[in-house]
């Protein structure tokens, strides 16, 4: 029995040894192009950009928001942390904005890699993706999981 529970603890133990907190893996982060002129963003600025209220980055560039759509858990966690809303509420919110002609929802990217590629290729892009998959091509401007 003791051996079994040690076995169960092993992945956690391993993760701690590697310096990874299990809670951190998969937490969404907000990223921009390294040359976007943006060093960091506040939560309110990110709310304005991803909820269709603001169309430009603080640097003045026209913003092109993009989200990692798969797996849906990343996006769900992002909106839960950002505005405390579930995905169905976010979808209904966008239906209202889109079909009243006010704004268009963020572009949906199929994977973390696609978000990375889109943001690395566009100085106005602002992306949301799994923090564990971020690399040097982009800059993290807000880490909501912190």
């Amino acid at each position: 029995m003791r051996a079994l529970s040690l076995m169960r603890c092993a992945p956690l133990f391993l993760a701690v040894c590697l310096g990874l907190s299990p809670a951190r893996a998969g937490e969404p982060v907000v990223i921009v192009h390294p040359d976007s002129g943006v060093q960091s963003l506040t939560r309110d600025e990110v709310i304005n950009l991803f909820m269709g209220r603001q169309k430009r980055l603080p640097s003045g560039r026209v913003a092109a928001p993009v989200e990692q759509a798969e797996p849906p858990a990343t996006r769900a966690r992002f909106y839960q942390l950002l505005v405390g809303k579930d995905l169905p509420d976010i979808h209904a919110y966008w239906a209202r904005l889109l079909y009243s002609g006010q704004a268009q929802p963020p572009r949906q990217a199929a994977s973390a890699e696609e978000v990375l590629e889109l943001v690395a290729a566009n100085k106005g892009a602002i992306g949301v993706m799994d923090g564990a998959r971020v690399d040097r091509r982009v800059r993290v401007v807000l880490d909501l999981g912190k």
């Binding site: 919110y93 209202r96 079909y99 009243s100």
Partner: peptide, 19 residues
Amino acid sequence: RLGFDVFQIADTRNVGYSY
């Protein structure tokens, strides 16, 4: 030709999914 939103949600009242 614009939606007229005098009242809350008046310009999306045909979009059932939004409410």
